[in-house]
């Protein structure tokens, strides 16, 4: 059970039960669909971009605890960040959940995102953790309507 407790840290269970910024946003400048057809996880991501700064960010939809908590934490952390800062966090988060870097050396930049360090032990769950981040990354970089991890 210890392994699973490492994955489902309290901060993850909390963000799953009480997701932050979990609503529609009418004034969003970018609205993207985000889904994993394999498991049916499906979110919509709302971004309000002004002068390369994420002024506001929200999401709605449904999925597993890992994907929902990840979207929720991402929305909390990226609010007010510049496009460049968001992109750097995406790269860092990606490397943490795929086990490419040791999160212990990046605790300061990661903050609460460090809770997802356990995901790297479970390859099947990497997609869940990265789903919303990928959509955000797409939104900032490309003019597409939707993103899927498949």
């Amino acid at each position: 059970m210890e392994d699973l407790r490492d994955l489902y840290q309290e901060v993850i269970l909390d963000h799953n039960k009480n997701p932050r910024n979990f609503h529609k946003m009418d004034r969003a400048t970018k609205v993207l669909d985000s889904q994993n057809p394999l498991c049916g996880d499906h979110y919509t991501l709302f971004l309000l971009l002004e002068d390369d700064v994420i002024k506001d960010i929200s999401f709605e939809g449904s999925g597993c605890a890992i994907s929902k908590a990840s979207a929720s934490l991402m929305s909390s952390i990226l609010k007010g960040k510049s496009r460049k800062e968001a992109e750097e966090l995406f790269q860092l988060f990606h490397q943490v959940v795929t086990g490419e870097i040791d999160p212990v050396e990046h605790l300061e930049e990661l903050g609460k995102l460090a809770a997802f360090a356990g995901v790297s032990e479970f390859p099947a769950r990497v997609k869940c953790a990265i789903l919303a981040w990928h959509t955000m990354h797409e939104a900032l970089n490309e003019e597409t309507d939707s993103f899927s991890t498949e």
Binding site: D3, L4, L7, S62, C64, A65, I66, F122, A124, R125
Partner: peptide, 13 residues
């Protein structure tokens, strides 16, 4: 409201 993926992961453990 446990998502099936979370539940099946738990059971797998």
């Amino acid at each position: 409201d446990i998502h099936p993926h979370d539940l099946s992961h738990f059971l797998d453990q």
